[in-house]
Design a binder for these strands. Structure first.
Length: 228
DNA sequence: GACTGATCATGG
DNA sequence: CCATGATCAGTC
C-alpha cells in the first residue's frame, strides 16, 4: 500500500520539513508508516533506505533518468553514516558510458547536473545494527561550494580524458580524489561494448561515478559544524 | 579500518 | 535489458 505517500513537495522548505519530521525514526517504523515491507536482511535490502525515503518524501521520478524532485531540481540521496556521523560508504552518482558519449568537460557533464542540488539524508547506524534498526537523520540540502566544485571538476575531467582515450581497461577506483569510477552492474559477467585504445570495439564491465566517503564526510562536517 | 571490486532489489 | 536505489565482503 502506498496510501500514506504524500504528494510531491512544492517548495524546498516543505521537502526539508518533511524529512525533519521523519528524523529519529527507524527504517522499520518508517516502512510500516508508509506501507512498505522491510527486506529480510541488509544484503537483500540494498537500496531500501533510498526507496523508502523517496516514498516518504513524495519523490516522483521513480527509475527514470530525472531528478527525484523535477520541479525543484533536487536529487535525493541517503548517506549511511556511523554514530559519529562519518560516512560508511561511497555514494553512487550516475552511470559512466564508455562508448564515446561521455562529455569531456565538467560543465557539460551529467555528474555536475546530478550534484548541483542534493538533499542528503543520513542513515545512522553502527556495525551491528539490523536494517530495520537503522535511523533516519537530519537532512542537509547541499550545493557544491567553489572548493567542492573545483575538486569534482578536476577529478571528472581527468577521468573523462582517460575514458575518451579508450583506456577503459586501465580505469580503476584508485583514480580521483573526490570522484571515482567503479564497476556498477548486477555482476562481473555483465559487459558493455566500449571503445578501446586503438578505437576498436571491445567488451568491458559497466562503470559508474561514485563520491568517495572522504569527500562526503568533509562535506557533512563543514555543513554540520558551521551550520550551513 | 579503509578501499576496491562485486553484488542485490525493483520497475519500466 | 537498462535505469533507478545502494551496500556487501574480501583484500590491502
Amino acid at each position: 500500500m502506498d496510501s500514506a505517500a504524500p504528494a510531491p513537495p512544492e517548495h524546498e522548505d516543505e521537502l526539508v520539513n518533511r524529512d525533519r519530521r521523519l528524523a529519529g525514526a527507524s527504517l522499520a517504523a518508517a516502512a510500516e508508516r508508509y506501507g512498505l515491507e522491510l527486506p529480510p536482511s541488509s544484503t537483500r535490502g540494498k537500496g531500501f533506505a533510498g526507496r523508502l525515503l523517496e516514498v516518504a518524501l513524495g519523490a516522483t521520478a521513480g527509475s527514470r533518468a530525472a531528478p527525484d524532485f523535477p520541479e525543484l531540481g533536487i536529487e535525493l540521496k541517503t548517506l549511511p553514516v556511523d554514530l559519529q556521523g562519518k560516512p560508511r560508504e561511497s555514494t553512487w552518482v550516475c552511470h559512466c558510458p564508455l562508448d564515446g558519449s561521455l562529455p569531456i568537460s565538467w560543465a557539460d557533464s551529467w555528474v555536475r547536473q546530478k550534484l548541483s542540488r542534493v538533499l542528503w539524508i543520513p542513515i545512522v547506524y553502527d556495525a551491528s545494527a539490523e536494517l530495520g534498526d537503522r535511523r533516519i537523520g537530519l537532512p542537509i540540502l547541499w550545493s557544491p561550494n567553489a572548493e567542492e566544485a573545483s575538486m569534482l571538476g578536476q577529478d571528472y575531467e581527468a577521468l573523462a580524458e582517460r575514458v575518451a582515450l579508450g583506456e577503459a581497461d586501465t580505469i580503476s577506483a584508485r583514480h580521483g580524489v573526490a570522484l571515482q569510477i567503479r564497476p556498477k552492474a548486477a555482476d562481473a559477467r555483465q559487459a558493455d561494448w566500449v571503445v578501446g585504445e586503438e578505437g576498436e570495439w571491445t567488451l568491458a564491465n559497466p562503470r559508474g561515478f561514485y563520491l568517495r566517503a572522504s569527500f562526503t564526510g568533509a562535506m557533512l562536517a563543514r555543513r554540520v559544524t558551521t551550520g550551513g
